[in-house]
Amino acid sequence: MIKRDVLVAFSLSLLVLSISLIIWLEGYIRIATPIISSLGESYLYYSYNPWYSNYTSFSLNVVSAIIWDYRGFDTFLETTVLMASIIAIYTLLRGFEEKVFLQPKGLSTITKTATKIVIPLIIAYALAIATHGQLTPGGGFQGGATLAVISSLIIAVYSLEFLYYMGYRSKRLVVIRGLCLIGLIIVAITPLLIGFILNTKSYIFQNMSKEDSFISMPSFLFDAPLAGSIFFYNVFELLIVFTGLTTALMLLSLRDVELKKAFEVREVYE
């Protein structure tokens, strides 16, 4: 028994040591291959490059530039896929009803108090990730997933009842999500509409000005690059992902009483 413990401790310490060695070595020698494909090189070169204003997206974070600018349409479809998966959960549990006043208890005072302090900080952090998606690693999806942590915390610590008390209903969340999806589409077609009014060429999902179209989203706000539509997409994506994951969490933690009808419906079909 003791021999095994010593072996486990030794191997764990070896793991930590080797990982820290790799991190330390990274500063001195090359670990990955130095060859970057020409496509990757062009992304790195143009994603923030004010001297080539026809190619750049004014986003310091290259991942955000690729996701929302170079392949914006693809990401938009990904967002709708998330919506579709929530609808799939709805169809599985059809017939459920949300009941208030079931007198939940929740966990002890200690956990509740500690969670109470953490929740506003999580909100601030999630919004920091989302609004700085064009400057630092992060973005709308990451921010939304972080924000959804508060719903899971509330469900675990205070119980689902508290979410109802705060005004969360799955139907309302669906409406918010739909509105944000419409907001995404509006941001995407705004350059097209402006181009239509000014009678010039413009594209759907256009961010900065191109060679044959001078229409451009705002590239700077105050003293930091805003990256035009990337910022707006990130904010809408934050709300979409937050409401989506919260709906999923709420539906998965429904109580027995609320699911009674859903079970009856299933029995009829069986």
């Binding site: 900080l121 601030a124 952090y125 920091a128 700085h132 400057l135 003293d223 805003l226």
Partner: peptide, 17 residues
Amino acid sequence: FFIISTGSFKYYTLVIG
């Protein structure tokens, strides 16, 4: 907390914060 977590002290961060 917001400013520390973003790690920047620009007007942009301050206004949004």
